[in-house]
């Protein structure tokens, strides 16, 4: 595989840890949802972890990241504190958005993590605009925008890509094509199903990659990020992937066969990467065991933090509708 030579044992371990943290964090979230600790909508990323991991590892801390309502994993990859994310999902004021946003609206300005957007496609022009600001301010950071293939059917996708290409601004659009827009399959929502061609139609360099293979995503993302940064122009990376879980916790999955899900699970990116690392001697069984312990501890710590969190006073309800002006 292409990235083998570059992958140090240290980085390999970090990446595997991140994948497992995403998976276990969300499995825990689902459990806490059934216990009614987490309410509202909860959209799990399970199955798609190689995409967020592979793309975000290619970024610098000063790059902007914008995600969808299925963004817990992206926040974790961006090193947003797991406890702050869990507390956010509990609705506690210790959450990364003070509990105001919940699962769909994870924000951490210090990490340049800009949500958490729950109107499909609504954040694409924000990414174009943030990249425009980088260009105007002559900064060398880029903006990365994750969205699903469902968003590519929205008019705003086409407007945002056209503007980004017209203005030549440094934005990487990452389409997480998991084949279903809620319950509507790709073939029922797109007349032309190769999403990367939609980018090419706007003069944007576009590439599709197997989103179930971390190494392939990393290779493609490294190249895409490097190109956006050096050219200052947009790029569309389509990661073909699959969501193993339901769309949200309210979804009975009437629209797909169980056998299809099982078939895709054979391509689960996590065991695949783990197997690769063992084979390449980049990790040992002892390290894996030790990793399990660390994961368990980190997730427990996150849950404990959320449990110990506090509710914001009702009197503060209307704070942050407008900015609080410094006392004059």
């Amino acid at each position: 595989m292409e990235t083998k030579d570059q992958l140090s044992a240290g980085k390999a371990e970090k990446l595997l840890y991140q994948l497992l943290l995403m998976r276990k964090f969300e499995e825990k979230s689902a459990e806490l949802y059934t216990k009614e600790k987490i309410r509202g909508f909860l959209h799990l990323y399970i199955g798609e972890e190689a995409v967020a991991t592979g793309v975000i590892q290619a970024l610098k801390p000063e790059d902007n990241v914008l995600g969808t309502y299925r963004e817990h994993a992206h926040a974790l990859a961006r090193d947003v504190d797991a406890g702050a994310i869990m507390a956010e999902m509990y609705g506690k004021q210790e959450g990364c958005s003070r509990g105001r946003g919940g699962s769909m609206h994870i924000f951490d300005k210090e990490k340049n993590f800009f949500g958490g957007s729950a109107i499909v496609g609504g954040h694409l022009p924000l990414a174009t605009g943030m990249a425009l600001a980088s260009k105007k301010l002559k900064k060398d950071n880029i903006s990365v925008c994750f969205f699903g293939e469902g968003a590519a059917a929205e008019g705003i996708f086409h407007e945002a890509l056209n503007l980004a290409s017209l203005w030549k601004v440094p934005v990487l659009f990452v389409c997480e094509n998991n084949l279903y827009a809620m319950g509507t399959a790709l073939r029922f929502s797109h007349a032309m199903q190769e999403i990367e061609k939609k980018g090419q139609a706007y003069g944007i360099e576009s590439k599709a990659v197997d989103g179930m293979d971390l190494l392939k995503v990393m290779t493609a993302a490294d190249k895409a990020v490097e190109q956006v940064r050096s050219s200052g122009e947009p790029y569309l990376l389509v990661c073909n992937t699959y969501r193993f879980r339901a769309h949200s916790m309210f979804d009975a999955e009437l629209y797909r066969e169980k056998s299809e899900v099982e078939e895709w699970k054979k391509r689960d990116p996590i065991p695949r990467f783990r197997k690769y690392l063992l084979k390449q001697n980049l990790i040992s069984e002892v390290q894996l065991q030790e990793m399990e312990e660390r994961l368990k501890a980190e997730i427990q710590k996150a849950v404990d933090f959320a449990e110990a969190g506090t509710w914001e006073a009702k009197e503060e309800l209307t704070r942050f509708v407008y900015s609080e002006k410094p006392a004059s």
Binding site: G129, M130, A131, A133
Partner: peptide
Amino acid sequence: GAGIGASLAG
């Protein structure tokens, strides 16, 4: 939307 995004970024 791009104007909103640009205003977020300085």
